[in-house]
Computed example of a mutant assay.
Amino acid sequence: MTFRMPPEWAPHERTWMAWPGPNPTFTNEEELAEARAAWASVARAVRRFEPVTMVVGPGQLDSARALLGPDVELVERELDDAWMRDIGPTFVKNANGELAAVDWVFNGWGAQDWARWEHDSKIARHVADLAGVPVLPSPLVNEGGAIHVDGEGTVLLTDTVQLGAGRNPEWTREEVEAEIHAKLGTTKAIWLPHGLAGDYGLYGTQGHVDIVAAFAKPGVVVVHSQQDPAHPDHERSRLYVDLLRGRTDAKGRTLEIVEIPAPTVLKDEEGDWVDYSYINHYLCNGGVVLCGFDDPNDEIAAGIFRRLFPERIVTLVDARAIFAGGGGIHCITQQQPKV
Rank of each mutant, 00 (worst) to 15 (best):
I260S: 03
A262D: 06
K267V: 14
S237L: 08
G246M: 00
R236Q: 12
V274N: 01
E256W: 03
D233L: 03
F305R: 04
N285A: 11
I279N: 02
V289P: 03
C291M: 01
T315N: 00
G271N: 06
N285P: 13
G292F: 02
P310D: 09
V220K: 11
D268R: 04
A216R: 08
T315V: 10
L255M: 07
E299A: 05
H234E: 05
V212I: 14
R238P: 00
R245G: 04
I257G: 01
V289R: 03
V220Q: 13
D298G: 04
G292E: 02
H208W: 12
N297F: 04
L243M: 14
P263E: 02
Q227S: 06
F215G: 09
V289N: 04
V258F: 09
V274Q: 02
Y282M: 14
V220E: 15
V289I: 15
T264E: 15
R312G: 02
E270G: 00
E311Y: 03
V314L: 01
A302M: 03
I304Q: 12
G219F: 11
V209W: 09
V314G: 00
L283G: 11
H208I: 09
E259Q: 15
R307T: 13
H208D: 10
V265R: 14
G207K: 06
R245E: 15
I300F: 04
N285V: 12
V288W: 11
C291H: 00
D295S: 00
K251N: 07
W273V: 01
I211A: 09
A213I: 12
C284D: 10
R236N: 10
F305K: 05
I300M: 05
N285E: 14
V209M: 09
H234N: 14
E256D: 11
S237H: 09
F309E: 08
F293H: 02
H281E: 13
G252F: 11
L308Q: 14
A214I: 12
P296Y: 08
D275R: 08
H234F: 15
E259V: 03
R236L: 14
C284H: 13
D294G: 06
F309T: 05
G219D: 12
I257H: 04
N297Q: 13
